[in-house]
Design a protein around this nucleic acid. Structure first.
Length: 227
DNA sequence: AGTCCGATTCGCT
DNA sequence: GCGAATCGGACTA
C-alpha cells in the first residue's frame, strides 16, 4: 500500500555534519512493544560536534554517565530528558563526543498511533485532532509520537536494533530537494558565537519543519531556477 | 543535602 | 508573546 521500497541503513560510521545533512529524507523507524511499526521521514537535524562547541553536552570533553552515548560507536542512540518532562533524541557520529539531534519528522506510517500518543500526553482533553504536520515538528514532539524514551531507547545500536533503526528511501533520494543550512534552536545560553553557527539543516518548504528561517528561505528562493 | 537549570511544549493573554 | 510545568543530573560544599 505504501509503495515504499525501504532499505535498512547498516553503516553509520559518518562524520557529524555529513550525517546531519545526509539524514534529511531518510526514514526513522520504531517498533513498539505490541509490534506496531511507526515511521517518519527526517526533515530537520542539528549537529552537536563537541569540543569547542559550548552548546554540546560534551563541551571541552565533558563526559558524564548521562552523555556517555556521545562517546560510543557511531550510530548509537543518545536520549536524554529535558525540562523534567520531555526527551530529545540524538545519534552519535564518527567523532568521539559528537552527535546529531533529530528535530523534526514528516509522519509516514502509524499516524493514528502517533496521534494517540500525543493526545494522551496533553493535560487539557480535547477532541480536536492534531494536524499531521504538528505530530513530529519538534525534537520532543517526535519522541512522544514514536514513544522514544530514555528507558527504552537510550544507547541502542541503530545499525542492529529491531526497535529503532534507519532506512533509505531510493525514490525520495532521487528527488531534487533544497537544504537550508542555518542556526540551531534553543541554545542562546551557549553564547552568540556558537548559537549562530550554521549547524542546523532542514528540507526547504517541508511543512513538518519546527522553525523556518524566513530570511534565508527568501534568499534561496530568489536564486532557485529549478522550476 | 542544597542549588541550579535545561538542545521544550503548552495554554493563556 | 510570555510564563508555567517539572525533575534528573551536574555541581558545590
Amino acid at each position: 500500500m505504501s509503495g515504499l521500497n525501504l532499505q535498512r541503513i547498516t553503516d553509520l560510521d559518518i562524520a557529524c555534519q555529513t550525517m546531519a545533512f545526509d539524514f534529511l529524507g531518510k526514514i526513522l523507524a520504531r517498533r513498539l512493544d505490541d509490534g506496531t511499526v511507526l515511521r517518519g521521514r527526517i526533515v530537520e537535524t542539528e549537529c552537536y560536534p563537541g569540543g569547542e562547541d559550548k552548546a554540546s553536552h560534551s563541551h571541552n570533553g565533558r563526559r558524564t554517565p548521562s552523555n556517555e552515548p556521545m562517546y560510543m560507536a557511531a550510530g548509537t542512540s543518545y536520549v536524554y530528558m529535558t525540562y523534567g518532562m520531555y526527551h530529545c533524541f540524538n545519534i552519535s557520529s564518527k567523532e568521539p563526543g559528537a552527535a546529531v539531534l533529530l528535530r523534526a519528522l514528516e509522519p509516514v506510517e502509524g499516524l493514528d498511533v502517533m496521534q494517540r500518543l500525543r493526545k494522551d500526553r496533553k493535560k487539557k482533553l480535547d477532541d480536536r485532532q492534531l494536524k499531521v504536520d504538528e505530530l513530529c515538528n519538534g525534537p520532543s514532539k517526535l519522541c512522544i509520537s514514536l514513544n522514544i524514551t530514555k528507558i527504552e531507547c537510550n544507547k541502542l545500536d541503530l545499525t542492529q536494533s529491531d526497535t529503532l533503526w534507519l532506512e533509505h528511501d531510493p525514490e525520495f533520494s532521487a528527488r531534487n530537494i533544497q537544504v537550508v543550512k542555518t542556526s540551531r534552536i534553543g541554545i542562546a545560553s551557549a553564547g552568540e558565537e556558537w548559537s549562530k553557527k550554521p549547524l542546523r539543516f532542514y528540507i526547504l518548504g517541508n511543512p513538518s519543519v519546527s522553525k523556518r528561517d524566513k530570511n534565508l528561505e527568501t534568499k534561496l528562493n530568489s536564486v532557485d531556477f529549478s522550476d
